[in-house]
């Protein structure tokens, strides 16, 4: 397996390439998922704490490329930019710009 295979797809009307790295236990990650759902965003997410050791290591390496602190939630948009933390206005902005 790899991290990609563990990514869960949430279908939504607002098409864009959003990858959300989250923790299953984290309050801000839950708020981020809730906001994306409310905005009907189409996105993929993975709860990094639930991964096995090898996949977790791979996920941490991926996240660290975008966010050296490797904190959660980390949202990667179009493989170009990232939003670290539950920044509601920034997330709303990204979804508003999406199809």
């Amino acid at each position: 397996m790899s991290v990609k295979e563990h990514m869960k797809h949430v279908e939504g009307a607002k098409k864009s390439d959003i990858k959300l790295y989250a923790l299953s236990t984290c309050g801000w990650c839950k708020k981020t998922k809730g906001l994306l759902n409310k905005l009907q965003a189409d996105y993929h997410y993975v709860d990094v704490d639930l991964l096995g050791d090898a996949d977790q290591e791979e996920a941490v390496a991926e996240i660290t490329k975008w966010n050296p602190q490797c904190s959660f939630p980390t949202l990667v948009i179009d493989n170009k930019s990232c939003i670290v933390g539950f920044k509601e206005q920034e997330i709303r902005g990204v979804i508003a710009d999406a199809g």
Binding site: L23, S24, T25, C26, G27, V48, D49, V60, C70, F72
Partner: peptide, 17 residues
């Protein structure tokens, strides 16, 4: 926090890996 306590044996912050 309780989930972390159960799986790691210590109550690590729920918002950190």
């Amino acid at each position: 926090l309780l989930e972390n306590e159960a799986r790691y044996g210590y109550g690590a912050c729920p918002c950190r890996l």
